[in-house]
């Protein structure tokens, strides 16, 4: 679904929650006249279960889209090996291959991206522009953070991850 220039994605969890509560509402309204009399506000509330995740996704993705040019300007292309805890807060670009993908279904994907020097965890707090799969060659833009904000090893808080194009090497 596209709102303005932003491609909005809704997670399967949100759809699942909506479907379950829809079934509950249908069953309840079939069995209870009290529920039927309140459908005028129950149905809009039910749709809020879809609208709220869509709105949140739209807001996060539009914010990430605004940040991307600034990150593109500031980022330095580094090998994974050079990323260390002294670089917390630095904006980096990594060229690598995706080794693992987790939590894509939650719209909070985590990737393990490797280059010839090592691998690093790349966390994203919204859905990426394009679907990224294992073995894709990607360009990652993001900020070095600690895994658990105040502690843990350095990971990349990703603002943009996209498949590598031929023009990236130019």
């Amino acid at each position: 679904m596209k709102i303005g220039n932003v491609e909005v994605k809704i997670s399967v969890i949100s759809i699942g929650v909506f479907v379950i509560f829809t079934i509950f509402l249908i069953l309840a309204s079939l069995n209870s006249p009290d529920v039927r009399s309140n459908l005028i506000w129950l149905i809009p509330v039910l749709f809020m279960l879809l609208v709220i995740p869509v709105a949140l996704n739209y807001m996060s993705r539009s914010q990430y889209a605004e940040l991307e040019p600034e990150y593109e300007r500031q980022a330095k292309t580094v090998r994974v090996k050079l990323i260390n805890e002294n670089m917390i807060g630095k904006i980096v670009r990594i060229d690598g291959v995706v080794e693992r993908v987790h939590f894509q279904f939650l719209n909070r994907p985590q990737y393990s991206v490797a280059d010839r020097s090592g691998a690093i965890s790349v966390k994203m707090f919204t859905s990426p522009d394009e679907e990224i799969k294992v073995n894709d060659l990607v360009v990652v833009l993001g900020q070095v953070i600690r895994r658990y904000i105040v502690t843990g090893e350095p990971v990349v808080n990703c603002v943009s991850i996209r498949k590598k194009r031929d023009t990236d090497d130019a």
Partner: peptide
């Protein structure tokens, strides 16, 4: 010593 983690990675 504060750069040690970075330096040790260079050996890999």
């Amino acid at each position: 010593l504060g750069c040690q983690a970075f330096l040790l990675k260079l050996f890999q």
